[in-house]
Amino acid sequence: MFKVAGLNYARGRRSVLQDINFESDAPEIIGVLGENGVGKTTLMRLIVGAVLPKKGAHITLDGLTGDALKSAVAFIPNLNWVRKRDTISDVLAFYRAGYPDFNQERWTEVNKTLRLNEQDQVSALSKGMLERLIFALTVSRDAKVFMLDEPFSGVDVLTRRKLLQTLIQWVPEDATILMSTHEIAEIEPVVDRVLILKDAHIIVDQTIDDIRDNEHMTLEQYYVQRYVEDNGGIEL
């Protein structure tokens, strides 16, 4: 079980995330939704230890904490560290050396669909191809938690479909996947459950089945309704 408890984070005086609690039994795909700047990326950075939460937070994965947990989490916030002349093949070598759980077979399979050319320079890739690369590198590890931060930004509809298919087909079955996105309608049939963030809090933590069964709404309708409700009924 993957568990996040009592997570708080502030930037200066501003509370970015407040009392974040959720847990996940693998296999599970969780959509992380919320308006721009609400803290979706920060949540992922906190989980992987790139930024530190306030005291009192507990993040555990099957009993693991700290560095042992971090090494079981696959997350690539960006590729800013790549040198200008590095090719995909250079990045791959670096990544393979850095992560012993890199699964070459899965990389090959995933790349049959995503068709990255290993000779291409990373700095010359289009935004869409860069997203493909980040996606492919992330899912090619034998991790227990996979985090994908807006994998569809700047990505066309066919590629979005390919990425989602890849996710369904190739991600290990004993893993939890956290995926932040604004493509609510598109991910509804793919995720098991959603966390909706607003004003530093998780305002919704529900499965898609429950939303459809109990609210008789699509995820997008429910998202809009909850955001409006939370604003005291005032439209955004």
């Binding site: 296999p27 795909i29 479909r161 989602l164 298919q165 369904i168 087909q169 049939p189 793919v190 995720v191 098991d192 898609i208």
Partner: peptide, 14 residues
Amino acid sequence: VRELAATLVINGRT
């Protein structure tokens, strides 16, 4: 199930 799920782009559990 996994193949169907990938083809239809739908969660495996569904």
